[in-house]
Amino acid sequence: MRLNLRESLLYLVTRLLARGDRRARTMADYQPENVQRILLVSSTALGDTVLSTAAMVAVREHFPAAHITALIHRDYVPLFEPTDFLDGIIAYYGGYSHFFSTFLALRRIHPDIALILHGNEPQATPLAYLAGARFIFKLPNTSRFAFLLSNQAPRLSWLDMGHGMMQRLKVAQLVGARIEGARMHLPIPNPTREIVTRWLAEHDVMAADIVIGLQAGASSRGRMWPVAHFVALAKMLLAVHPAYRFVITGAPHERLRCEEIARGIGAGAIVAAGALSIEMLPALVHRCAVLVTGDTGTLHVAVAVGTPTVSLFAVSGPDVSGPAYDLERHIVIHHPAPAGVRSKTDNDRWMAQIPSDEVAAAVTQQLSQFAQQATACPERSSGGSS
């Protein structure tokens, strides 16, 4: 009830302000040559924000002299601070938490335009408007706050968007950015690479070792492959090559789950969850020969840094949230759940129907390709530049 009251109040305030706003704010009035300050909103989960980097770079290339600020969830700010396509970052705390201070920080920027690449509503669009943005662009444009948008027509829904990365690129295209051939971008600064290398060495993982990443967590249990399946997969692979090393990744709150997998595997497994901070993730994933993962943000990190993946889908669709490009480097295993099963379900029975031996065959295929690449390009196997 309280949240509904807040949303209703926010709706009323922005309605009244927009009614008295005499600025020309439609697409027909937009003049890109006058843009000096840009706000990019991508304030949701890790994977959502990594997907947004393709659009962020496209906007930077179209507006090389503009000052570009991004509103990013506070948990992921350190990951994007080294980027060269953003001039500033403002932390988003989720929902209405710190709403007023966030509004004030955005207001100080006073952007000419705002692009909502992926943001929580009902906060994202009103925040962009209250920040002072004259032109606001967002797709889909079907929410109750669409009256604040410059692109109110044609009305497009999520079904019109395609892959998640393309949805963000379509927003960038509205302001004139070129989106052909766009790719995600995540920096791997040398200091973070060195920290990851030292951390691995402390766990007896050396440069010549083949490392397999296992992403244990996800945004919901319905997107997690069961612990026993991860353990069975690792044992199948170790039976063929006892020297494989496994790095188990996940959020800090998923550490117990990761440790359970590590105990099942034995001495060849180490847990990164809670041991390395978020800004180390690109370097760690890049060091892996292959990453096994569900529908997670770490999957998109792997695509961004060029690490081959085996991704597992059941309750969500790879056409929307699977690997966005370089499809020849990524194997998708999709065992669709029955129609009507929600993607955020906490029931992992559908992921459990993906057998370990099928995943093992896919990992073996990826490792075979990795061995060929390592022969041709030795720095790839030792965590060289992406």
Rank of each mutant, 00 (worst) to 15 (best):
G384C: 14
T364P: 07
H229G: 15
S382H: 15
L148K: 03
L117G: 06
R134I: 10
E61S: 07
G268N: 15
G119N: 11
A124G: 10
V332D: 10
T249S: 15
A337W: 10
L367H: 07
V35M: 15
Q152Y: 02
P111V: 11
N4R: 11
L127T: 04
G95H: 12
R221D: 10
R22V: 13
T14Q: 00
I248P: 11
N141Q: 07
G132M: 04
I113S: 13
Y93R: 00
F145Y: 05
L214F: 14
V359A: 12
V320D: 07
R168N: 06
S219L: 11
Q167M: 08
T364L: 12
L86F: 02
L71F: 08
A339D: 15
F80R: 02
R144Q: 15
A360P: 10
I265G: 12
N141H: 00
A251K: 09
A54M: 07
H73Q: 02
P122T: 06
P154K: 08
N141L: 06
W199D: 10
A91S: 08
A54C: 10
T53Y: 03
L367S: 05
V196W: 12
F230R: 07
L12K: 04
G268V: 03
L276I: 08
R108E: 01
A361I: 04
L159M: 10
Q31A: 14
